[in-house]
Design a protein around this nucleic acid. Structure first.
Length: 455
RNA sequence: GGACCGUUGGUGUAGCCCGGUUAACACGUCUCCCUGUCACGGAGAAGACCGCGGGUUCAAAUCCCGCACGGUCCGCCA
């Protein structure tokens, strides 16, 4: 018989159906046993009542434990009025089991998957990732994350952007600055891409508007709640822009669409975390870097680096924007040229600053973008001014020799965005299998100990 | 790399300040009882040489020193 999904059970009252899923929990009352069965669409209560014709059946039901995988055939019955469970969408019905096939057993769980919260340290949470991801609150994170990616794809596709696949193996330490992972590449050396930057720019010369969603790699030895050594970047790049404000406009439009879709499709997931969705103003406030610096200094009373915003200042500015400007998002524009890559377009009024921006959301930088230099000669000059030989970028520069429109783009950190929408303390919680200095799936030092013990 | 905090059954914590005999609690696990629960309930049981090494002491989970590991913040970082 064809499998029925749990979400569809209320439509099948009185019918005999086949359900398949995991045992969420067993409530054994002796003669009568209740199982909460879970599949990808929901949870339903299954009732095992004494069966005189087949006493073995009840014994088999008694062996069911959490996370056992089972196929159950039975009749969907309406529950008596006083036994309706308001907490679940299928609370008005239940399955009276007639046949049970155990598709797979499960070892006893080291954690309580039915507890309201996953009450454990980050280390344990990640060490047991294949199991802890099954918890409803963990699943909620990645449902919301998938929605973010989906809206990015939909929005930019609708607006004339084409999806491209950027290579992850690259020949040079792309833009200099941040550390990259080197890999053996046959007889020579190559690197893992720290961003799709060069390739999305080249493709603007071909398709005018492009976007790409993919992993990027940073070999920086950072150890914070907002950094990963492998993360997912949502990138777009577009030609024929006036300046960076065109980019900020399209980002604002996407964010509006995103919040709308999250509200419509991830209501339960957001509810589980209790963090309200942000309001997106028609114009997200934008303040220039020098202005932002002044505000941050005034509030903190601290003298800080002239060229960059410190994490504490980013938090201060976010708080300021939320309180004074009525927006949880804040653009900071015109970062100093010294702190931006060489392809960043300088500002006409004062070339010490650039036509670039960061987007702050709830205290962290979630996107970076700006207008790029599209003139070949100017770009070569800019590379030289950083003391780099332009020959290293011959391949990339070719795009600018043969007709590059005025262009720009931006990149979002998917995990940071997810974490901030749900109010998670650490981006690693918003990463299925986070890679950091200490961990690739398991903690690296633990792996070492295991290897040494084997020797 | 720096600062601070931490490390106690499978998981989360209490006990440590003020050293003392069976290391406590909750969840999970196992056994038994239970026909209406929905994070079912009841009775019982198993499970920890208290991160590692050293010191002080008649006596150390508890005090001292060193190390390892983790967490948070910072640094670093498009």
């Amino acid at each position: 018989m064809q499998r029925t999904l749990i979400i569809d059970t209320p439509k099948n009252i009185g019918k005999k159906v086949t359900l398949a899923g995991w045992v969420n929990v067993r409530r054994d009352h002796g003669k009568i046993i209740f199982i909460d069965l879970r599949d990808r669409t929901g949870i339903i209560q299954v009732v095992f009542a004494p069966n005189k014709k087949n006493p073995e059946f009840q014994k088999l039901a008694e062996t069911l434990r959490s996370e056992y995988v089972a196929q159950i055939i039975g009749a969907i019955n309406e529950r008596p009025k006083n036994m309706i469970n308001e907490k679940i969408p299928t609370g008005k019905v239940e399955l009276l089991a007639e046949e049970l096939v155990i598709l797979n057993s499960a070892q006893s769980l080291p954690i309580d998957l039915n507890a309201e919260h996953l009450d454990m340290g980050l280390e344990t949470l990640l060490d047991m990732r294949p199991l802890t991801l099954k918890h409803s609150k963990a699943r909620a994170i990645f449902k919301a994350q998938a929605e973010i990616v989906k809206t990015f794809y939909e929005f930019f596709s609708k607006n004339g952007f084409m999806e491209i696949q950027a290579p992850k193996i690259v020949p040079e330490a792309t833009e200099g600055g941040s550390e990259v992972f080197s890999i053996e590449y046959f007889e020579s050396k190559a690197y893992l891409a720290q961003s799709p930057q060069f390739y999305k720019q080249i493709m603007v010369g071909v398709f005018e508007r492009v976007f790409t969603i993919g992993n990027v790699y940073r070999a920086e030895p950072h150890d914070t709640t907002r950094h990963l050594n492998e993360y997912t970047s949502l990138d777009f790049e577009m030609g024929f822009i006036k300046d960076h404000t065109d980019l900020m406009k399209i980002i604002t439009e996407w964010l509006k669409f995103l919040v709308e879709q999250l509200s419509a499709n991830c209501h339960d997931e957001l509810d589980a975390y209790g963090v309200p969705l942000p309001k997106i103003l028609d114009d997200i406030p934008a303040i220039s870097f020098p202005e932002a610096k002044k505000i941050a200094r005034k509030i903190s009373g601290k003298e800080t680096d002239d060229l960059d915003l410190e994490p504490e200042e980013e938090r201060i500015l976010s708080g300021y924007a939320a309180k004074e400007l009525n927006s949880e998002f804040l653009f900071v524009t015109h970062y100093p040229a010294k702190k931006r890559p060489w392809y960043t377009m300088p500002d006409d009024a004062d070339p010490k600053y650039t036509k670039s921006f960061d987007l702050l959301f709830r205290g962290v930088e979630i996107a970076t973008g700006g207008q790029r230099i599209h003139n070949y000669e100017q770009l070569v000059q800019s590379i030289k001014s950083k003391g780099i030989n332009p020959d290293k970028f011959k391949f990339y520069l070719m795009a600018f020799q043969y007709g590059m429109p005025p262009e720009g783009g931006a990149g979002f950190g998917l995990e940071r965005l997810t974490a901030k929408f749900l109010g998670l303390a650490n981006v690693k919680e918003a990463t299925l299998f986070p890679r950091d200095m200490k961990r690739i799936d398991l903690l690296l030092h633990k792996e070492k100990i295991i290897k040494e013990e084997k020797k």
